[in-house]
Nucleic acid binder design. Structure first.
Lengths: 204, 204, 204, 204
DNA sequence: GATGAATGAGTCTTCATTCAT
DNA sequence: CATGAATGAAGACTCATTCAT
């Protein structure tokens, strides 16, 4: 009786998290529409109704998932920035750290990375959610660009345009490295990918 | 009775084209899965069964459409290249023409442009079709890059990486200009978008 | 091949009618909500999808059914009026014919009668449909009351009130006779039911 | 800790009554099947499980509610009879009092009145409960009719038939007055509704 | 008594596809 | 070639009810 409480105790939030995990895997694997709510529940080891107890709808689940993954990414990146020493001294080196860290994250979280690729521009995710998530993530880049422009290191193009361009180059890079996994560890290729990015931003 | 045949006669291929047109509009507007074959047929003014006379399945229709739009784009771009005078003299000016022409096409074909954005990376289109279409379009760019590298004008990074990067920047640009239509006619912004692209490619 | 056409020929509208028939029986037997669309289709011998090919929704099916039954009733009653000889001479006898005919119809169409009882006031049927149907049926009664009031035979109360009262008495009568089937053929009871009705309407 | 018990103490039966109140409002508003037990609990401010502590099932709740409302009505009517002076002297005046009082009750308790209209004949309420409730209420009427027949004032038709007829007329009247609220205070209409009823019952 | 997370059978409805005409 | 009624498997979502706390 005493131990029963201990033994059967299931960590709270476990089911909700299990649902999110299953959904992530299945959405990436089969796409949103091809994944049934029943299959998500089954993979998570819960009843179909449980999904709808935690999320109002299949769409709500996707939106929630999207936000969660984006935040996780943002947190990881911001940790990386903080743990470095006196940042701001050498902007290019800061930028490179950011870039490589972001790509590392993608390579180390291949499912989440594919999730980004598939849903970052998909209309299946709510436009507002997408924008919100995007801003939270791209904030680092805005800060970096503004600082660089003040220092005369980064070209003086409109920030929104540069931001869009950064995002596009980042998506292209992670797609490239996941399509060709063997090159993800190739220092020269990794270096090249950053160079392409940096050249477009820096002043001549 | 006699005239009826004449009057009602619909030019051949009209129905097939009507189906493609309707499908394009609806797929862009509502997404692939949210668009029923019935609604496509209705918008095209034909019976539901007719769609399956012309296309083996809904998927086949999407693939066909994808290929058709990509080819149309490729053709338009290649026309643009041919109609220019002695190309090859000034590589940067060639590249700029290509870039601006490609963006113009997107701005002048907004539905098709959105179609690109939504389906270029979607798993709903067959991977082989996608790749095939991609190559046909990007071929111009390969040619350009190779020539530039030989001339020592374009940086000597691996071509597949540069290609992926180009594609990413292009998608970012057309998304930017369609999200902010008022800037599509702004020469300085258009110029800036090319500059970003060109800097990343050229040697320092 | 020749006979095939004849043999396999299924009368058009058969499936739609079969669905209506099945729905009538099941709705009366189990109630609207307790009847699944699947069971209706099954009883009608068609696929589940077929129901939705003919009716936009389960609700639409109920509304359609309600209207159809009401019209059938109205038509039967109006036939009864027309086939009688010089009507209008003796108003009381006209009224009695109408009353007994209406009760006969209910006794001879027990399922449809129960359908009336259950759905005439149910909120499951669209309010507009209900009113529309009601008016078409009660029109005879309005005509009768107005004529009677002009002749000084029928009491001069507000017509809508009298109409509501008639309807209430009719529903009570058919419920009474179907709850006690053995009295439906009892002339004195049938006579009594009319007398109750007529006394309330006539002038003293 | 001590005061907590006192402060939070909710008067017993409060929750049960709250559930009945919420159920009444929702059943009338949305119908029985369209009302979820969860919504009843929510409106009552209790947990979903609590409903099932007080009522064995959703059906049991409806039956309980039906009986309670009917009894409340019966009690109110019987109070009205008792508080009048020497009843029985003038039967018609007694009947009119009964009739007007019953209609007043309906007008003053619109939700309960709608509840009657919707569930008095609905198969969702247990047939036995319905009959039981009906008898308890109509008992006054039986007494009245029998007395009237003995006195030769009321027509000598079978009592069950007259009862059913009374009920039908009553339902019609309250529906009429709630559909047209402005006439509920119109003395002549109220008088007319009684006259219709009384004429059908009295001897010529 | 009270709670509310969990259940899973059951519901309506959609839709790509077929085929007799 | 064209039609559109028919199909039936599959899907998202609901909800009365249970039970561990």
């Amino acid at each position: 009786m005493i131990s029963k409480t201990v033994v059967n105790k299931v960590p709270k939030k476990d089911k909700k998290q299990a649902l999110l995990d299953s959904a992530l895997a299945l959405f990436v694997d089969q796409g949103f529409h091809a994944t049934s709510t029943a299959s998500i529940a089954k993979k998570a080891g819960v009843a179909t109704g449980t999904l709808f107890h935690h999320f109002a709808s299949k769409d709500a689940l996707l939106n929630h998932l999207f936000m969660a993954v984006k935040l996780e990414f943002a947190e990881d990146i911001s940790q990386g920035i903080l743990t470095r020493g006196q940042t701001g001294k050498d902007l290019k080196s800061d930028a490179e750290h950011l870039w490589q860290h972001a790509i590392d994250w993608a390579l180390q979280n291949p499912i989440k990375q594919r999730f980004f690729l598939q849903y970052s521009m998909s209309s299946e995710v709510d436009a507002t959610i997408r924008e919100q998530a995007m801003n939270s993530v791209l904030h680092f880049v805005v800060v970096l660009i503004e600082k660089g422009q003040q220092q005369g290191i980064i070209a003086d193009f409109p920030i929104p345009l540069m931001l869009a361009n950064c995002h596009g180059q980042y998506l292209a890079a992670i797609r490239y490295f996941t399509d060709h996994p063997q090159w993800g560890d190739d220092v020269s290729q990794r270096q090249a990918s950053f160079e392409l990015f940096w050249r477009s931003m820096k002043v001549d």
